[in-house]
Design a protein around this nucleic acid. Structure first.
Lengths: 109, 109
DNA sequence: TTAATTTATTGCAATATTGCGATAAAGATT
DNA sequence: AATCTTTATCGCAATATTGCAATAAATTAA
């Protein structure tokens, strides 16, 4: 994050920006959409689907998991990934809130 | 975006990731929230509010404008910035759509 | 016209992200 | 045990982002 520090922002601002940042790459959007479609899948399924190598997909999944967007459960020697609705709901609520505020009183120049 | 190219993803995936990326920095979340609260403001107001120098704020505003999140109208020697609801609505619709799909059939592991 | 105000741009250093080959780790299969 | 399958981690190069001082550009005010 360069020179400016986390202490300059609220917890909510930091959480939201972290979540948005994770969605800020087309590969991770594609992974999200694949997970919606399949409900759950393993890393290898995504590697077959996307034009990315296995370590790259693994890294993207790690970042998505770190912000709580997906869960991963060990099933045998593979890991079953799926979307965790909670964080997505938080993002939805936030944007909905902004939209409502704008509808009421957006006086744009 | 490194080695992988834009042609590997759909237009929608690229648009959405660009929008999310812009929200993926706490300073830009703070700018967004400030704009909601004030309805409209000039660059200098944000500089006074945030712990960032004027060129940095100007750069953040430029990025937010590039994805259509905000509009800027020249008013005398200053520029009046405000939120453009259209793009925000697109983001809202997208996340709402995902949430609905998950509610129906999320069978997580 | 000169100075003040306001925003944008340039150029640079520091840091972060992206992608992947090589390899490790760990359970499953034979 | 040896091998296969699957995912994670390491290390590196290439690229992108962030922040800001200095400066430019453009309008307003005196």
């Amino acid at each position: 994050m360069g020179i400016s520090k986390t202490e300059n922002y609220t917890f909510e601002q930091l959480e939201l920006s972290k979540l948005a940042k994770v969605l800020g790459h087309p590969a991770r959007i594609a992974i999200l959409e694949f997970l919606i479609q399949k409900q759950k899948c393993i890393c290898g399924d995504i590697v077959d689907e996307l034009p990315l190598a296995q370590p790259t997909v693994s890294q993207h999944l790690k970042e998505m998991k770190a912000v709580g967007l997906i869960k991963g459960n060990i099933e045998g020697n593979s890991i079953c990934y799926c979307i965790d609705e909670k964080v997505l709901q938080m993002l939805l609520n936030y944007i909905q809130n902004i939209s409502e505020k704008l509808e009421i009183k957006n006086k744009c120049c």
